[in-house]
């Protein structure tokens, strides 16, 4: 365990060192990563600024959902979601083979070497947006915080599941970086209150592909109005992780190389 943590720290250190070769570009990129995530909140602001609203939700409640969503991305994207581009890049260039011969699990290696420092901008953005929204909302109680933390960890589990699926796709669908767009389009459903979607779609985003867990469900718990099917969504989230691992392992077995 300690050696695994050391390895991850070394991966972070190396990732940062490599990116610092172009410092100015790194700073601009990290800042842009932060700003680009504010498209959703900007839309929310413009809706409410035009004297409209999402029924049953105040602007800061919606912003909290989006802040939590961004926070979840802010942790997952730098620290483990990099397995997606790392796998895509290595499979395309033929350097994925090098990870297969290391004396560690391929998944661990692909996470360690996939640290994405630029995405730390998302983390800062998530913290800022969540902080601003919470400042404008009634203070949550201890029980709300406990429920939120538990559900937030599960949101990271779902993120990891998505990362595994996209990285698995990267093994069989060579060089297709547009898999990120698939994730973004689906994940959009987690950035808004589930009540705005139809009943059938609510079932899909909680019980089939649990994207509601990425932002809406943890934020609802923090707001003190937990979603009725939360427990069900938690169970589905773990099943989603299990299915993702299965998918990753299946695609990994299908990996073929021409030697790089």
């Amino acid at each position: 365990m300690i050696s695994a943590i050391k390895m991850h720290l070394q991966g972070i250190k190396t990732g940062l060192a490599v990116r610092m070769a172009y410092r100015a570009d790194f700073i601009i990129s990290a800042f842009i990563m932060l700003i680009s995530e504010f498209f959703g909140p900007l839309l929310t602001y413009l809706i409410y600024n035009n004297e409209a609203s999402l029924p049953g939700w105040s602007m800061y409640e919606v912003l909290l959902i989006q802040g939590v969503f961004l926070l979840s991305k802010g942790i997952s994207f730098p620290f483990f979601f990099g397995i997606v581009w790392n796998t895509l890049d290595r499979v395309q260039n033929g350097t994925f083979d090098l990870l297969l011969i290391k004396p560690r699990s391929v998944l661990q290696m692909v996470i360690v070497t996939g640290f994405d420092s630029e995405d730390l901008g998302k983390l800062i953005g998530g913290l800022a947006l969540t902080g601003i929204a919470l400042y404008r909302l009634p203070r949550p109680g201890l029980s709300e915080w406990v429920a939120f933390i538990g559900l937030f960890v599960i949101s990271l589990v779902v993120m990891f599941g998505f990362a595994l699926i996209l990285a698995g796709l990267g093994i069989v669908w060579i060089g297709n970086y547009r898999v990120y767009e698939i994730f973004s389009s689906i994940a959009n459903f987690g950035m808004y209150p589930a009540s705005i979607f139809s009943k059938s779609l609510q079932t899909v985003i909680t019980s089939v592909i649990p994207v509601a867990m990425l932002g809406f469900i943890p934020a609802s718990a923090l707001l003190g109005k937990p979603y009725e099917n939360t427990l069900y969504a938690v169970i589905i989230s773990f099943m989603f992780l299990f299915a993702s691992l299965l998918f990753w392992n299946t695609t990994l077995k299908k990996y073929t190389s021409s030697g790089g």
């Binding site: 609203s53 999402l54 767009e181 973004s184 705005i196």
Partner: peptide, 23 residues
């Protein structure tokens, strides 16, 4: 991939604006 991404992203917008215009 656009055949999937475009309509799905658009679907989110449809739901958002339907909810907004319901008031």
């Amino acid at each position: 991939i656009s055949i999937f991404v475009g309509p799905v992203t658009f679907l989110v917008q449809v739901f958002i604006w339907n909810a907004v215009y319901s008031t």
